[in-house]
């Protein structure tokens, strides 16, 4: 294809990408460098149903003047990135320069909101992604071995966790694990411990969210792998059988290598999806024990004291950088592989 043709062929999608991806990310980047104007405060008498008291209020006219002069807000540079709610550079320095060993460092890091969210996000991503793929592959193999007539209904049932809206799925499980719910009450009876609660302990909350994540996303891996299984060449499988390979060896030496490119694709999608984990934290009211980067952004935009756009934008940029770092090794491998193929 000539370069000119290629350009015009790509132009519409390139334009859409610029409009809907590059421009929004650019605006977030700019937003994250600014904080709100200084608010002019005055003390006034405030009277209501409970009597009068002296309280401060914002002088809106004076603040509006400041705002008209600088519509973007006060320039703060990377200040927002370095503050306590994000990378917490000062706090990090204090922790590293004076601590009682790795345990103390970890405990104090978990006390900083960004690192707390990052820790759960990474744990979730790196546990849910491989386990999800393993479970999805196992289910695909099992269903592929079923008699033809029963496949349809079984596939539909297997897909249900993925079809259910994430928030709804999380809420249903949340009510079941409540200490009055069927799972919560059963666990208490089994272990004979009335204080046992999946919602109270941080470790159990993490485990519960991760199990939920695997349950919810495994059908996606299953569907892709199941489709892939239909393309495994039957003559290779048959010759492997003639060579005396048992079922396990056939899976390991024929099916798995055949599905490897597909696995890379599933892995990429799952990594990106899991890194943005959000719904189960809301659904399970789990923010006491587990927060994620996406939850931090939501929390900044949904506060009582107005919306902290700069802070949310900074977390968004950091999340984007995180996704890029996560995907780099996989992308480099794919690029190298495609390079080899074309040579």
């Amino acid at each position: 294809m000539r370069h000119r043709d290629f350009f015009w062929f790509m132009a519409p999608s390139a334009l859409a990408m610029i409009l809907f991806i590059v421009v929004p990310i650019g605006s977030i980047l700019v937003q994250s460098l600014f904080v709100e104007h200084e608010r002019v405060l005055i003390t006034v008498e405030n009277c209501g149903p409970f009597g009068c008291i002296e309280e401060t209020r914002v002088d809106t006219e004076a603040t509006a003047d400041l705002r008209a002069k600088e519509p973007l807000g006060r320039f703060n540079g990377v200040g927002t990135y370095l503050d306590r709610a994000h990378l917490a550079v000062d706090e990090l320095g204090a922790i590293l320069s004076d601590n009682d060993g790795p345990g103390d460092i970890a405990r104090r890091l978990m006390n900083l909101p960004f690192y707390k969210a990052l820790a759960f996000t990474l744990a979730y991503t790196f546990l849910v992604t491989p386990l999800c793929m393993a479970l999805g592959f196992g289910v695909a193999l099992a269903i592929d071995a079923l008699p033809r007539a029963s496949k349809g209904p079984v596939i539909f049932l297997t897909l249900l966790p993925y079809i259910a809206t994430p928030l709804l799925g999380a809420l249903v499980v949340f009510w079941m694990i409540n200490t009055d719910g069927i799972i919560g009450a059963t666990l208490q009876a089994m272990f004979d411990d009335p204080a046992l609660s999946l919602q109270a302990s941080p470790v159990l909350t993490w485990a519960m969210l991760i199990v939920w994540g695997i349950w919810h996303m495994a059908p996606f891996a299953f569907v892709v792998f199941y489709a892939g299984l239909q393309t495994v060449p039957s003559d290779t499988l048959e010759s492997a059988m003639i060579d005396g390979a048992n079922r396990w060896e056939r899976v390991l030496y024929v099916t798995v290598p055949h599905l490897k490119p597909l696995a890379v694709f599933v892995g990429l999608i799952l990594l990106m999806d899991n890194f943005r984990v959000f719904e189960p934290i809301i659904g399970f009211s789990a923010e006491a024990n587990a927060t994620s980067l996406s939850w931090s952004i939501y929390n900044d935009l949904n506060g009582q004291g107005g919306q902290l756009f700069g802070s949310a934008a900074a977390t968004s940029v950091l999340t984007t950088i995180g996704v890029m770092i996560l995907l780099t090794p996989v992308l480099i491998r794919t690029w190298r592989a495609s390079g080899r193929r074309s040579v």
């Binding site: 405060l41 209020r57 009582q304």
Partner: peptide
């Protein structure tokens, strides 16, 4: 309940940061 302009920010901070203590 205080009606100072920044009480909402204090409310948010309390809601997020008291959890570790309560546990």
């Amino acid at each position: 309940y205080p009606m100072t302009p920044y009480m909402g920010l204090m409310h948010d901070a309390l809601g997020a940061e008291l959890v570790d203590f309560m546990q």
